[in-house]
Simulated assay, not measured.
Amino acid sequence: MTGFHEVQFPLRLALGTSGGPVRRTDIVNLSNGRENRNARWRDSRRSYDAGSGIKSVADLYAVLEFFEARRGRLHGFRFRDPLDWKSCAPGAVVSAGDQQIGTGDGTTASFPLVKTYGDGGTGWVRRIAKPVAGTVQVSVDGVAVAPANYSVDAVAGMVTFVPGQIPATGSVVRAGFEFDVPVRFDTDRIEVDLSHFDAGRIPTIPLTEILP
């Protein structure tokens, strides 16, 4: 992922963030009253606004500094979605059995991290490109795999088994993890309103997801 900085937007500055997934669907109304629907995007794309209420001057400066270091919209960065940031439900604890990331064939050593939303034949599989280092747990056929038997690429979101530990044919590979969303600023301008002596606000800080 070019033009990307492996740094996280400060969590304390993201309080009050709004936003979520966005999809693009074309709807054509037919003469008989029915309609045709067509998905323009295969995957959804997250969009956020990290602007919030009154902040201290120190926090305002931290946003300004982070924005300048990214050169506005030029470089991407990591962002913690306040609702969807791990392989399980918000109130659950991450475990090695959370998400199926592949099926062994006896030769494939690397598996991309994914998260599935929904169930049955209607589920949508999301590629997870930015796992949080040190949080990934892996299991094969329900048995936890020792960390020494695999490596995790936290930049690309890949799990790679070491030689001699490659999953056998038909075995189910699962993983649990925390993750960030790769985003960029969706503006080249930050407006700071110093409405108080020692505090102020930035009304809007638009962010948009960078798809892998």
Rank of each mutant, 00 (worst) to 15 (best):
T2P: 06
G3P: 02
F4Q: 05
F4H: 14
H5D: 09
E6S: 14
F9Q: 01
R12C: 06
G16W: 05
G16R: 09
G19W: 02
P21E: 05
L30H: 08
E35A: 07
N38A: 09
A39Q: 15
D49L: 06
D49P: 04
A50N: 09
G53S: 08
I54K: 13
K55R: 12
V57W: 11
D59N: 12
A62P: 02
A62Q: 08
E65G: 02
G72L: 08
G76A: 04
F77T: 11
D84H: 09
D84Q: 11
W85F: 10
K86M: 14
C88P: 00
S95D: 08
Q99H: 00
I101F: 03
T103M: 13
G104Y: 08
D105M: 14
T108L: 03
L113E: 00
V114G: 00
Y117E: 10
G118P: 04
D119F: 07
G120C: 02
G120K: 06
K130D: 04
G134A: 10
Q137L: 15
G142I: 11
V152G: 01
V159Y: 00
F161C: 08
V162W: 06
G164E: 13
G164Q: 13
P167Y: 09
A168E: 12
S171Y: 04
S171C: 04
V172C: 03
A175P: 00
G176Y: 00
F177D: 02
F177M: 07
E178V: 01
D180C: 09
V183T: 06
R184F: 07
V192Y: 04
D193S: 11
S195H: 05
H196K: 15
H196F: 14
H196I: 03
I205R: 03
P206R: 14
P212L: 13
